[in-house]
């Protein structure tokens, strides 16, 4: 397994840590690296999207129960104004996970990748903002009072 798939902070593990199972690694060696935050966010957004995906399979299965059941659910949750922040957060989680996933693939394939990781991380953040600011605006537009 390549370096990029493992939290970079783990590189700080002492030689005798190799004998120690990963789940016994003390938290303090997992701190203080920018790459660590990218890794934490990748896990959290991945778990968040997976959680929503399971809900989404369940809500879509209402299609089999007929028009009223499905529309009732969509109207009382997904189309409510208070649900929109969650929708935008879902979009943000997807976009971040996609961009950082691309970064991980680049680090895996490019031998010199780790040296350019600061640039890659900046690219992830800026692309995220360039995508999410207009997307958030477009998603909120129909809900703005007029």
């Amino acid at each position: 397994m390549s370096a990029a798939t493992v939290d970079p902070a783990l590189a700080e593990r002492q030689p005798d840590d190799a004998l120690r199972p990963l789940d016994r690694t003390p938290l303090r060696v997992l701190r203080n690296r920018e790459g660590h935050w990218a890794w934490v966010l990748h896990r959290l957004t991945g778990l968040g999207v997976l959680g929503f995906l399971c809900l989404h399979v369940l809500d879509t299965s209402m299609m089999l129960l007929g028009e009223d059941a499905y529309n009732h659910l969509i109207k009382s949750v997904y189309q409510q104004w208070w649900f929109q922040p969650a929708e935008i957060a879902l979009g943000g989680a997807l976009v971040y996970h996609a961009l950082n996933g691309l970064r991980v693939i680049v680090l895996d394939l490019w031998e010199d990748g780790l040296r350019h990781d600061p640039l890659l991380r900046r690219l992830v953040v800026w692309t995220f903002l360039v995508v999410m600011i207009p997307l958030g605006g477009v998603m909120l537009w129909p809900f703005l009072p007029r």
Binding site: G66, E67, Y70, I74, Q79, E87, G91, L135, V138, P142
Partner: peptide, 13 residues
């Protein structure tokens, strides 16, 4: 679902 259409357009039909 969220950009080319609005979530307000999504229903059973």
């Amino acid at each position: 679902m969220h950009a080319f259409n609005s979530i307000l357009d999504v229903d059973y039909h």
